[in-house]
Amino acid sequence: MKHEIVIAGFGGQGVLSMGMTLAYAGMLENKEVSWMPSYGPEMRGGTANCTVIISDQPVSSPILNSFDIAVVLNQPSFDKFQPMVKPHGYLLYEQDQIFNADCRQDIHAIGISATKEAHALNNKRAMNMIMLGALLGTNAIVDIPSVINALKKVLPERHHHLLPLNKQALKKGQGIIHQVAEV
């Protein structure tokens, strides 16, 4: 199995670390992974994105122009990556950030109110983990315990008390997709 994923949004929304956590979790499951960030001034205030590949086979190109799943957290990213989602692929977007969600019919475009759900969890920074959970809801790319183990490595020790909250957020996101799938 190979999963080709892009995560995009404003710099500061945490898209790079979201991708890094995912790649780390893949590595902990002994998969082949790569994480390729956009970098440079475009990240300041502009859009940041990263390509994450998780695969059973060695990864050839870390640079892609079509994706199985795109996770987008702002309108420019929605507009940029919508055309690059493979037919039958997923476009997951943060509902409150996207004003124009007109979309191709041959992909699954799913809006997720991650910001609202994060507020419900009393931590707006949980937005990321809800989106990541949603991503894992589309496809069992990695297990949630692996993500938690990855967070242990990625997060500084002083933030480890937030791990239970992150787990809750991941499950929340995953649940949202599973519900959509059942409908």
């Binding site: 890094m20 790649a23 992974v33 390729m36």
Partner: peptide
């Protein structure tokens, strides 16, 4: 090159 410098892999 810049991409090899910035990208992460195991």
């Amino acid at each position: 090159d810049g991409a090899l410098g910035q990208m992460m892999e195991p």
